[in-house]
Amino acid sequence: MFHEEHDHKQIKILGETQKIYENLIPFLDCIDYTVSKEKYEVKKNAIYDMLVTVPVPENLEDYYKSKDYISHTDSKKSLFDKVYQAVKFITLKRKLKLMNSFKTSTKNILDVGAGTGDFLKTCKENNWNVSGVEPSLDAINIAAVKGVFLKENLSEFKNEKFDVITLWHVLEHVENLKEYMATLKNLLSENGRLVIAVPNYKSYDANYYKEFWAAFDVPRHLWHFSQNSIHTLFSEVNMSVEKTIPMKFDAYYVSLLSEKYKSKKTNPFQALYRGFLSNSKAKTSKEYSSLIYVIKNS
Protein backbone atom coordinates (compact mmCIF):
# COMPACT_ATOMS: atom_id res chain seq x y z
CA MET A 1 0.00 0.00 0.00
CA PHE A 2 2.79 2.40 0.94
CA HIS A 3 4.60 1.87 -2.33
CA GLU A 4 1.62 2.45 -4.63
CA GLU A 5 0.39 5.58 -2.84
CA HIS A 6 3.90 6.99 -2.49
CA ASP A 7 4.68 6.61 -6.19
CA HIS A 8 1.32 8.08 -7.18
CA LYS A 9 1.77 11.14 -4.97
CA GLN A 10 5.31 11.89 -6.07
CA ILE A 11 4.07 12.92 -9.52
CA LYS A 12 2.87 16.12 -7.82
CA ILE A 13 6.12 16.78 -5.95
CA LEU A 14 8.37 19.24 -7.76
CA GLY A 15 11.90 18.51 -8.97
CA GLU A 16 14.18 19.87 -6.26
CA THR A 17 12.03 18.51 -3.43
CA GLN A 18 11.77 15.17 -5.18
CA LYS A 19 15.49 14.65 -4.55
CA ILE A 20 14.88 14.45 -0.80
CA TYR A 21 12.82 11.30 -1.42
CA GLU A 22 15.79 9.53 -2.99
CA ASN A 23 17.85 6.92 -1.11
CA LEU A 24 15.59 6.80 1.94
CA ILE A 25 16.22 4.16 4.59
CA PRO A 26 13.67 2.82 7.14
CA PHE A 27 13.58 4.58 10.51
CA LEU A 28 10.27 3.76 12.23
CA ASP A 29 6.51 3.43 11.68
CA CYS A 30 4.06 5.92 13.21
CA ILE A 31 0.28 6.12 13.56
CA ASP A 32 -1.91 9.15 12.88
CA TYR A 33 -3.47 9.50 16.34
CA THR A 34 -5.36 12.70 15.51
CA VAL A 35 -7.57 11.81 12.54
CA SER A 36 -7.30 8.52 10.68
CA LYS A 37 -5.42 6.00 12.90
CA GLU A 38 -3.55 5.00 9.73
CA LYS A 39 0.07 3.84 9.83
CA TYR A 40 2.81 5.74 8.00
CA GLU A 41 6.47 5.09 7.44
CA VAL A 42 9.04 7.61 8.64
CA LYS A 43 12.24 7.17 6.64
CA LYS A 44 15.64 8.80 6.88
CA ASN A 45 17.56 10.81 4.32
CA ALA A 46 21.13 10.49 5.60
CA ILE A 47 22.49 13.22 3.31
CA TYR A 48 20.27 15.89 4.90
CA ASP A 49 20.09 14.19 8.31
CA MET A 50 16.29 14.49 8.22
CA LEU A 51 13.28 12.19 8.30
CA VAL A 52 10.51 11.98 5.70
CA THR A 53 6.91 10.76 6.03
CA VAL A 54 5.72 8.35 3.33
CA PRO A 55 3.31 8.11 1.70
CA VAL A 56 1.82 11.59 1.37
CA PRO A 57 -1.98 11.18 1.15
CA GLU A 58 -3.64 12.52 -1.98
CA ASN A 59 -6.24 14.28 0.17
CA LEU A 60 -3.79 15.69 2.72
CA GLU A 61 -6.06 18.64 3.53
CA ASP A 62 -8.64 16.20 4.99
CA TYR A 63 -6.15 15.18 7.69
CA TYR A 64 -6.40 18.67 9.21
CA LYS A 65 -10.18 18.38 9.68
CA SER A 66 -10.35 17.57 13.36
CA LYS A 67 -11.57 19.37 16.46
CA ASP A 68 -8.31 18.18 18.03
CA TYR A 69 -6.21 20.16 15.56
CA ILE A 70 -5.74 22.95 18.03
CA SER A 71 -3.88 25.59 15.98
CA HIS A 72 -7.07 26.07 13.93
CA THR A 73 -9.25 26.74 17.00
CA ASP A 74 -9.32 28.76 20.20
CA SER A 75 -10.70 25.82 22.16
CA LYS A 76 -10.18 25.64 25.94
CA LYS A 77 -12.20 22.49 26.64
CA SER A 78 -9.68 19.72 27.34
CA LEU A 79 -6.57 19.68 29.54
CA PHE A 80 -4.44 19.87 26.39
CA ASP A 81 -6.42 22.86 25.13
CA LYS A 82 -5.99 24.70 28.41
CA VAL A 83 -2.26 24.00 28.59
CA TYR A 84 -1.82 25.04 24.95
CA GLN A 85 -3.71 28.31 25.38
CA ALA A 86 -1.95 29.18 28.66
CA VAL A 87 1.49 28.57 27.19
CA LYS A 88 0.51 30.47 24.04
CA PHE A 89 -0.06 33.64 26.09
CA ILE A 90 3.49 33.44 27.49
CA THR A 91 5.15 32.53 24.20
CA LEU A 92 3.43 35.38 22.35
CA LYS A 93 5.27 37.85 24.57
CA ARG A 94 8.58 36.08 23.89
CA LYS A 95 7.96 36.01 20.16
CA LEU A 96 7.17 39.74 20.14
CA LYS A 97 10.38 40.44 22.05
CA LEU A 98 12.32 38.53 19.38
CA MET A 99 10.58 40.46 16.58
CA ASN A 100 11.38 43.78 18.24
CA SER A 101 15.05 42.81 18.46
CA PHE A 102 15.27 43.09 14.67
CA LYS A 103 16.02 46.71 13.83
CA THR A 104 13.85 47.50 10.82
CA SER A 105 12.58 50.76 9.38
CA THR A 106 9.27 49.60 7.88
CA LYS A 107 8.32 46.83 10.38
CA ASN A 108 6.61 44.71 7.73
CA ILE A 109 5.97 41.17 8.95
CA LEU A 110 4.48 38.12 7.22
CA ASP A 111 3.32 35.15 9.30
CA VAL A 112 2.95 31.95 7.30
CA GLY A 113 0.48 29.48 8.79
CA ALA A 114 -1.00 32.21 10.95
CA GLY A 115 -3.70 30.01 12.50
CA THR A 116 -6.29 32.05 14.37
CA GLY A 117 -4.19 35.21 14.20
CA ASP A 118 -3.04 35.69 17.80
CA PHE A 119 0.62 36.28 16.94
CA LEU A 120 -0.19 38.86 14.26
CA LYS A 121 -2.73 40.52 16.56
CA THR A 122 0.04 40.93 19.16
CA CYS A 123 2.40 42.35 16.52
CA LYS A 124 -0.27 44.70 15.17
CA GLU A 125 -0.92 46.07 18.67
CA ASN A 126 2.80 46.81 18.86
CA ASN A 127 3.07 48.88 15.66
CA TRP A 128 3.97 46.16 13.15
CA ASN A 129 2.45 46.15 9.65
CA VAL A 130 1.03 42.64 9.55
CA SER A 131 0.24 40.19 6.76
CA GLY A 132 -0.52 36.51 7.04
CA VAL A 133 -1.24 33.28 5.20
CA GLU A 134 -3.51 30.51 6.48
CA PRO A 135 -5.10 27.70 4.43
CA SER A 136 -7.87 26.92 6.96
CA LEU A 137 -10.99 28.96 6.26
CA ASP A 138 -12.26 28.34 9.80
CA ALA A 139 -9.05 29.79 11.23
CA ILE A 140 -9.20 32.73 8.79
CA ASN A 141 -12.71 33.57 10.01
CA ILE A 142 -11.66 33.44 13.67
CA ALA A 143 -8.67 35.71 12.91
CA ALA A 144 -10.91 38.22 11.10
CA VAL A 145 -12.98 38.68 14.26
CA LYS A 146 -9.72 39.74 15.96
CA GLY A 147 -9.04 42.30 13.24
CA VAL A 148 -6.41 40.19 11.50
CA PHE A 149 -7.16 39.54 7.83
CA LEU A 150 -5.33 36.62 6.28
CA LYS A 151 -4.85 35.33 2.75
CA GLU A 152 -5.13 31.67 1.78
CA ASN A 153 -1.99 31.29 -0.32
CA LEU A 154 1.56 32.57 -0.33
CA SER A 155 1.22 33.11 -4.09
CA GLU A 156 -1.07 36.08 -3.35
CA PHE A 157 2.02 38.05 -2.31
CA LYS A 158 3.76 38.87 -5.58
CA ASN A 159 6.04 41.90 -5.46
CA GLU A 160 6.01 42.60 -1.73
CA LYS A 161 9.03 42.50 0.57
CA PHE A 162 9.00 41.77 4.28
CA ASP A 163 11.48 42.61 7.03
CA VAL A 164 10.51 39.47 8.93
CA ILE A 165 8.82 36.27 7.78
CA THR A 166 7.77 33.83 10.49
CA LEU A 167 6.77 30.17 10.30
CA TRP A 168 5.79 28.85 13.73
CA HIS A 169 5.67 25.05 13.32
CA VAL A 170 4.78 25.33 9.64
CA LEU A 171 7.81 24.26 7.59
CA GLU A 172 7.23 20.61 8.50
CA HIS A 173 3.84 20.81 6.74
CA VAL A 174 5.04 22.21 3.39
CA GLU A 175 4.79 19.79 0.46
CA ASN A 176 7.24 21.23 -2.06
CA LEU A 177 9.81 22.13 0.54
CA LYS A 178 12.77 23.41 -1.49
CA GLU A 179 10.63 25.43 -3.87
CA TYR A 180 8.76 26.92 -0.91
CA MET A 181 12.04 27.94 0.71
CA ALA A 182 13.07 29.75 -2.48
CA THR A 183 9.73 31.60 -2.50
CA LEU A 184 10.24 32.72 1.10
CA LYS A 185 13.72 33.99 0.26
CA ASN A 186 12.33 36.07 -2.62
CA LEU A 187 9.77 37.70 -0.31
CA LEU A 188 12.41 38.73 2.20
CA SER A 189 13.93 42.21 2.17
CA GLU A 190 17.69 42.49 1.69
CA ASN A 191 18.48 42.59 5.41
CA GLY A 192 15.39 40.68 6.48
CA ARG A 193 15.11 37.69 8.79
CA LEU A 194 13.34 34.38 8.35
CA VAL A 195 12.21 32.96 11.70
CA ILE A 196 11.36 29.26 11.67
CA ALA A 197 10.26 27.05 14.56
CA VAL A 198 10.23 23.27 14.04
CA PRO A 199 10.33 20.11 16.19
CA ASN A 200 13.70 18.44 16.63
CA TYR A 201 13.67 14.68 16.14
CA LYS A 202 17.05 14.40 17.89
CA SER A 203 15.69 15.63 21.23
CA TYR A 204 15.54 13.42 24.32
CA ASP A 205 11.73 13.29 24.29
CA ALA A 206 11.72 12.19 20.64
CA ASN A 207 14.20 9.42 21.38
CA TYR A 208 12.30 8.35 24.50
CA TYR A 209 8.79 8.23 22.99
CA LYS A 210 9.91 6.98 19.55
CA GLU A 211 6.85 6.13 17.41
CA PHE A 212 4.57 7.67 20.06
CA TRP A 213 6.31 11.05 19.90
CA ALA A 214 3.49 13.50 19.24
CA ALA A 215 5.66 15.84 17.16
CA PHE A 216 5.95 13.22 14.42
CA ASP A 217 2.23 14.00 13.80
CA VAL A 218 2.01 11.93 10.61
CA PRO A 219 0.90 12.51 7.90
CA ARG A 220 0.54 16.27 8.52
CA HIS A 221 4.24 16.58 9.30
CA LEU A 222 5.93 15.63 6.05
CA TRP A 223 9.46 16.47 7.25
CA HIS A 224 11.23 15.93 10.56
CA PHE A 225 14.25 18.19 10.93
CA SER A 226 17.52 18.10 12.79
CA GLN A 227 19.77 21.12 13.27
CA ASN A 228 22.05 19.75 10.56
CA SER A 229 19.20 19.51 8.06
CA ILE A 230 18.08 23.12 8.62
CA HIS A 231 21.64 24.39 8.12
CA THR A 232 22.13 22.27 4.99
CA LEU A 233 18.79 23.01 3.35
CA PHE A 234 19.03 26.77 3.76
CA SER A 235 22.66 26.87 2.66
CA GLU A 236 21.40 25.53 -0.67
CA VAL A 237 19.37 28.72 -1.17
CA ASN A 238 22.26 30.92 0.03
CA MET A 239 20.88 31.54 3.50
CA SER A 240 22.51 30.88 6.86
CA VAL A 241 21.37 30.30 10.43
CA GLU A 242 22.23 33.36 12.53
CA LYS A 243 20.84 32.18 15.85
CA THR A 244 19.14 29.13 17.40
CA ILE A 245 16.70 29.54 20.30
CA PRO A 246 15.14 26.73 22.39
CA MET A 247 11.38 26.38 22.84
CA LYS A 248 11.40 24.80 26.30
CA PHE A 249 7.62 24.67 26.77
CA ASP A 250 7.32 22.34 23.78
CA ALA A 251 9.02 19.48 25.64
CA TYR A 252 6.22 19.50 28.23
CA TYR A 253 3.32 19.87 25.82
CA VAL A 254 4.63 17.26 23.39
CA SER A 255 5.30 14.88 26.28
CA LEU A 256 1.71 15.30 27.52
CA LEU A 257 0.38 14.21 24.13
CA SER A 258 3.00 11.49 23.72
CA GLU A 259 2.10 9.95 27.08
CA LYS A 260 -1.54 9.83 25.99
CA TYR A 261 -0.59 8.03 22.76
CA LYS A 262 1.80 5.63 24.51
CA SER A 263 -0.17 4.62 27.59
CA LYS A 264 -3.73 5.55 26.56
CA LYS A 265 -3.83 7.74 29.67
CA THR A 266 -2.97 11.39 30.35
CA ASN A 267 -0.17 10.77 32.92
CA PRO A 268 0.60 14.48 33.53
CA PHE A 269 3.26 13.85 36.19
CA GLN A 270 5.15 11.40 33.99
CA ALA A 271 4.90 13.85 31.07
CA LEU A 272 6.20 16.74 33.18
CA TYR A 273 9.11 14.59 34.31
CA ARG A 274 10.01 13.64 30.72
CA GLY A 275 9.71 17.27 29.60
CA PHE A 276 11.95 18.39 32.45
CA LEU A 277 14.46 15.65 31.65
CA SER A 278 14.46 16.63 27.96
CA ASN A 279 15.22 20.27 28.75
CA SER A 280 17.85 19.30 31.33
CA LYS A 281 19.72 17.06 28.89
CA ALA A 282 19.45 19.71 26.17
CA LYS A 283 21.44 22.16 28.31
CA THR A 284 24.45 20.06 27.31
CA SER A 285 23.40 18.55 23.98
CA LYS A 286 21.52 21.66 22.70
CA GLU A 287 18.95 19.21 21.26
CA TYR A 288 15.75 20.79 22.59
CA SER A 289 12.32 19.38 21.70
CA SER A 290 11.68 22.33 19.37
CA LEU A 291 13.99 25.05 18.13
CA ILE A 292 13.60 28.51 16.64
CA TYR A 293 16.04 29.33 13.84
CA VAL A 294 16.75 32.93 12.87
CA ILE A 295 17.92 32.80 9.26
CA LYS A 296 19.36 35.53 7.03
CA ASN A 297 20.67 35.86 3.50
CA SER A 298 24.30 34.76 3.26
Score class of each variant (00 low, 15 high):
K146L: 13
C123T: 03
P57T: 08
K107Y: 01
M239E: 02
Y288W: 12
S258A: 05
V198N: 08
D32Y: 06
K107H: 00
A114F: 01
F249I: 02
L257T: 03
K210L: 05
F80T: 07
V148C: 10
F157T: 00
Y63N: 02
F157S: 00
Y209T: 01
L188P: 04
K151A: 02
P268Y: 07
I295E: 06
L28W: 11
L60A: 06
N297V: 04
D205G: 04
V56G: 11
R274I: 14
E287Y: 06
L171I: 09
H231G: 12
L14A: 03
R193Q: 15
E190G: 03
A215M: 03
L28C: 15
I11S: 06
Y180V: 10
E172W: 11
V145K: 15
K37R: 12
P268L: 02
G115N: 09
D74I: 00
N153H: 12
G132N: 07
Y40L: 03
P26N: 03
K178T: 11
S101N: 08
P199C: 10
P246S: 14
L24H: 04
K283R: 15
K19S: 06
T183Q: 15
I292A: 10
S226T: 00
A214S: 12
E172D: 14
E172N: 14
D74F: 04
P246Y: 09
F276M: 13
N108F: 03
W168C: 11
Y21E: 04
L177M: 11
E16I: 02
K39I: 06
W223A: 04
L188Y: 01
D62K: 08
K44P: 10
W168I: 11
L277K: 12
H224R: 06
K243I: 01
S131Y: 02
T104G: 05
F119T: 11
L187T: 01
K283Y: 14
H173G: 15
D74W: 00
W168R: 12
Y63W: 09
D74G: 14
P246D: 07
T166Q: 15
K9Y: 12
V112Q: 05
E259T: 08
I20S: 08
V42Q: 09
I13A: 00
E58T: 10
N279C: 13
T183A: 13
G132C: 02
L167E: 11
T34H: 12
V130W: 00
V87A: 01
V130Q: 03
E287T: 01
V241H: 06
T73N: 13
N45I: 05
